[in-house]
Amino acid sequence: SEEEEEEWRRAKERGEEIIILGILWKPNDEEAERRIKEALRRV
């Protein structure tokens, strides 16, 4: 969703871990980033 995407962007800017759509994303975690982008597209 729009607000999840916004939340994720803010976490990326701050360089902090975030759990979004049930996926743990850490800074520079390209695999998780790809999965999150896929999940955001499906929503």
Rank of each mutant, 00 (worst) to 15 (best):
L24G: 05
I19V: 14
E2R: 14
R34P: 01
V43A: 14
R34D: 10
S1P: 13
E2G: 14
K37M: 09
R42K: 14
G22F: 10
R14I: 11
A11G: 03
S1T: 14
V43Y: 10
E4N: 09
L40G: 01
A11N: 03
E5P: 04
E16V: 13
R14D: 08
I23L: 02
E38H: 00
R42T: 13
W8A: 06
R41E: 12
E7H: 11
R41K: 12
R42P: 07
I18S: 04
I36K: 00
A39S: 04
E30M: 14
A32S: 12
R41A: 14
E4L: 15
K37F: 06
R34A: 13
E16S: 10
N28P: 03
L21Y: 01
R14F: 08
R34I: 10
K12A: 08
R14T: 09
E16A: 08
E2A: 12
R14Y: 08
E31N: 08
E6A: 07
E2I: 14
R35Y: 03
G15R: 07
R41L: 12
L40Y: 00
R34L: 11
E33M: 06
A32G: 03
R35M: 13
R41Q: 12
E13A: 11
E38N: 03
I36L: 05
S1R: 12
D29V: 02
E38R: 01
N28A: 08
K37I: 13
E16T: 11
I20L: 04
A32T: 06
I36R: 01
E30R: 08
A11W: 07
A32L: 05
K37S: 08
A39Y: 01
A11L: 11
L24M: 08
N28T: 04
E38G: 07
I23E: 05
E17S: 12
G22M: 11
E33T: 09
R42L: 13
E17T: 12
E16Q: 11
A39R: 08
K37E: 15
E6F: 07
D29W: 05
R10S: 10
P27L: 00
I18K: 07
I23N: 03
E17Q: 10
E13I: 09
I36V: 13
R35A: 13
R9N: 14
A32R: 03
K12W: 12
E16F: 10
G15C: 11
E5T: 06
W25P: 01
A32D: 03
R10C: 14
E31F: 06
G15S: 06
A39K: 08
G22L: 07
G15F: 04
E6L: 06
I19H: 05
E31P: 02
D29Y: 03
E2T: 15
K12L: 12
A11V: 07
R41P: 04
E7R: 15
L24Y: 06
A32V: 05
W8C: 13
E3F: 14
A39E: 10
E30L: 13
R14H: 07
E5N: 07
R9F: 12
D29L: 01
W8K: 05
L40R: 03
A11S: 06
K12V: 12
G22Q: 02
I20P: 00
I19M: 12
R35E: 11
R34G: 10
L21D: 03
P27N: 00
E31V: 10
R35L: 13
I20C: 09
L24P: 04
A11T: 03
E6D: 13
E33K: 02
V43H: 14
R9K: 12
L40K: 05
W25I: 04
A11M: 08
I23V: 05
E6V: 02
R41F: 05
R10M: 08
S1L: 15
G22H: 00
I23F: 01
E33I: 05
I18H: 04
E38T: 01
K26M: 11
A39M: 09
K26D: 06
A32N: 02
I19P: 04
I36H: 01
A11Y: 07
E38Y: 00
R9M: 13
E33S: 08
W25T: 01
D29M: 02
P27Y: 00
R42D: 09
E38P: 02
V43P: 08
E5D: 10
P27A: 00
E13D: 10
P27I: 01
G22I: 12
E38F: 00
L40I: 12
E31L: 07
E33N: 06
A39N: 02
L40E: 03
K26H: 08
E4K: 08
V43I: 15
L40D: 02
E3V: 14
G15Q: 08
